[in-house]
């Protein structure tokens, strides 16, 4: 550790120093792990580098998966109904959740890269989340994802089905519906009342809900949880590298300003 960094640690108050001593990491001058490298630079959070009054650039808010803006807008509005803006703070759109989902679909999750993908696949129509039709007396619950669709295809089909259902039911584009009617479409989706080739519509709904929560609460690194507002609303402190004994044992709830991976390690 350079002198410069020592000073930074000092300037940040005593708790870090205590943590260094208590942890045994630097015991006897021997660095036990790789963590110390991570500590350097972790203390210049906020302070003089963050310029509050200029709008931070959001270069990551562009599309790397969706090609048609209409699909992306539909997705955004659906996620907003699941996690709406309210008096607590922003909803899915304000948190950047649609960008989060776009980026995930473009990556290895979108192509199910770590899933087992060998066939045979069984009767995808009733899968997953429902019984697998394997023949008389063979129905069994709880076998998990068995469809041969990849997640990006699930999203493509799901978005297409939502649009079709809105048109058929309300004679209107999903994005033109008011919130209540959009909710009706989502309820139908949740109750398996929307036709989607290859999967039950509740499965798409559950995935959409899960992705929305991920986008709200994953580290901002992934494009959602904008300005850590998801964490702030939840009073979740994000990346904290240690808690003091007093904090652990506190009878009272302690408010802690959230930190992200970027702020902690790359700022």
């Amino acid at each position: 550790m350079s002198e410069h960094d020592e000073k930074k640690l000092d300037a940040n108050g005593s708790s870090r120093r205590k943590f260094l001593k208590n942890s045994g990491i630097a015991a006897g001058g021997v660095v036990v792990g790789g963590a110390l490298g991570g500590l350097i630079g972790l203390n210049d959070k906020g302070g003089d580098t963050a310029t509050k009054d200029t709008e931070p650039e959001q270069q990551d808010q562009a599309l790397e998966y969706f090609t048609n803006r209409a699909d992306f807008d539909l997705l955004g509005q659906a996620t907003e109904r699941i996690f709406p803006e309210d008096e607590n703070g922003p909803g899915a759109i304000g948190l950047g959740v649609p960008y989060y989902i776009d980026h995930q679909l473009a990556g290895k999750w979108g192509i199910n890269a770590k899933d087992y993908r060998q066939g045979p696949f069984f009767d995808g129509k009733h899968n997953p989340g429902g019984e697998v039709r394997l023949g008389e007396g063979q129905e069994q619950p709880n076998l998990g994802y068995q469809s041969q669709l990849k997640y990006h295809q699930v999203y493509d089909l799901g978005i297409e089905a939502i649009e079709k259902y809105s048109q058929a039911t309300f004679n209107e584009k999903f994005t033109a519906l008011d919130g209540e009617k959009q909710d009706e479409v989502l309820v139908a989706l949740e109750n398996d009342e929307v036709d989607i080739a290859g999967i039950k519509s509740s499965f798409f709904f559950n995935i959409l809900r899960q992705s929305t929560l991920e986008g709200a609460y994953a580290d901002p690194l992934y494009g959602g949880n904008k300005d850590m507002q998801g964490w702030k609303m939840k009073e979740y402190p994000g990346v904290q590298l240690s808690y003091t004994n007093e904090q652990v044992e506190s009878e009272e709830f302690i408010e802690i300003k959230p930190e992200s991976l970027h702020n902690t390690f790359f700022n």
Partner: peptide, 19 residues
């Protein structure tokens, strides 16, 4: 792998959700 490989581990999505 070892301790030095876990510096970015405060990432629920990467480690807990995506395994």
């Amino acid at each position: 792998r070892g301790t030095a490989n876990f510096s970015m581990k405060h990432d629920e999505l990467r480690y807990a959700i995506r395994g």
